[in-house]
Structure formats: structure tokens, C-alpha cells
């Protein structure tokens, strides 16, 4: 007997969206395939690499390890919701300015994870940033310029008092 599809409704990047999906649909596939927001990537299927990290109700979540139905009714921010080319979020500015990415595949997830870190710790040391990167894997950069990128973003945010994602803008 076929299991009926369910309606999953979220507020994503400030917009109400809904789609009917199989109950087993992963949040990451819901975001990518059903809502068409392909900035969030899948790297490992076992929640090690963090390329799929998004923010759900202000918490960083690996979207390959959550079912879409679990996120029903929540507020989600993906990389597309951070900022656009004309209005980049400080974390995006940091990654661009400091060469925090090479292939750019893990980058959306890494940036989301770092937004989460900066929310908890607006002025992290190098060591704290490296600890904060524990949940993500980047194969290209050796992480050094990611650390620089996060420090740069933290500085912009402290200086301009930019509001963090998940708070009222």
C-alpha cells in the first residue's frame, strides 16, 4: 500500500513555501528538488561533511539528516537567504575577500555553520573558529583562509552591528 504524500510548509528565506512530498523525504531533497533552492549541497550522506548545513529556527542543522516533515512549520535560512550579490552578508564578504573557497561546493554549508558560530561567539579566536569548523569538511582550502574569512566577517559584523540571520532585520 502506497503511503500518502504529505504537505510540508515552511518559511524559507522569508517566503512561505509548501510542497507535497513522500514522508521519508530528506529536508535537503525537499529544499533542493521541491523548492528548487540548489545552493545547499549534499556531500556525504552520513552527516560528516556539513555541505548541507542550513539554519532551522535559528539553529544550524545538517539537512541530509533531518526529514522534511520534521521541519514542517519552521523557519529556514539557506545560503540563498544570506544575501545577494548586491547585498552580501558579512560571512559572504569574508569568504570572497579572504579566498575562503575554491571549488565552492562545501561553501554554502560552511558559511551557514559559521553564521551559527558567530551568533554564539561574535569574536572568536582562530582556535575557536577551527573548533567551530568541526562539523564541516573542506577538501580544497586546508581551512586557513576559511579561518581568515570568518575573522573578517566577525569584524565587519562587530563594526557595523549587522543583524544575524534568523533575527529580525
Amino acid at each position: 500500500m502506497a503511503i500518502e504524500n504529505v504537505n510540508v510548509k515552511v518559511k524559507i528565506n522569508g517566503k512561505e513555501r509548501c510542497a507535497k512530498v513522500e514522508p521519508r523525504t530528506l529536508l535537503t531533497h525537499y529544499i533542493r528538488d521541491d523548492l528548487g533552492l540548489t545552493g545547499t549541497h549534499i556531500g556525504c550522506d552520513t552527516s560528516q561533511c556539513g555541505a548541507c548545513s542550513v539554519m532551522v529556527d535559528g539553529e544550524v542543522v545538517k539537512s541530509c539528516t533531518v526529514l522534511a516533515v520534521q521541519a514542517d512549520g519552521s523557519e529556514i535560512t539557506t545560503v540563498e537567504g544570506l544575501g545577494d550579490v548586491n547585498n552580501l552578508h558579512p560571512i559572504q564578504q569574508g569568504f570572497w575577500e579572504k579566498h575562503g573557497l575554491q571549488c565552492g561546493y562545501c561553501t554554502p554549508g560552511v558559511m551557514m555553520a559559521m553564521v551559527g558560530l558567530l551568533k554564539q561567539n561574535p569574536d572568536p579566536s582562530d582556535e575557536e573558529i577551527r573548533e567551530g569548523l568541526e562539523g564541516v569538511i573542506c577538501r580544497c582550502t586546508g581551512y586557513q583562509f576559511i579561518v581568515e574569512a570568518v575573522k573578517h566577517a566577525a569584524q565587519i559584523m562587530r563594526e557595523s552591528e549587522v543583524q544575524l540571520v534568523g533575527e529580525e532585520r
Partner: peptide
């Protein structure tokens, strides 16, 4: 800084999947 980055940091890359 790189020309490649604006699309990649805003989720506008175009990867196989």
C-alpha cells in the same frame, strides 16, 4: 579576489545535481 566567487557564495553555482 576571484571572479568565480559571487555565484558560489550566493548559492548560484550550477553543479551536476
Amino acid at each position: 579576489k576571484r571572479k568565480e566567487d559571487p555565484k558560489l557564495i550566493t548559492g548560484n553555482g550550477y553543479f551536476s545535481d
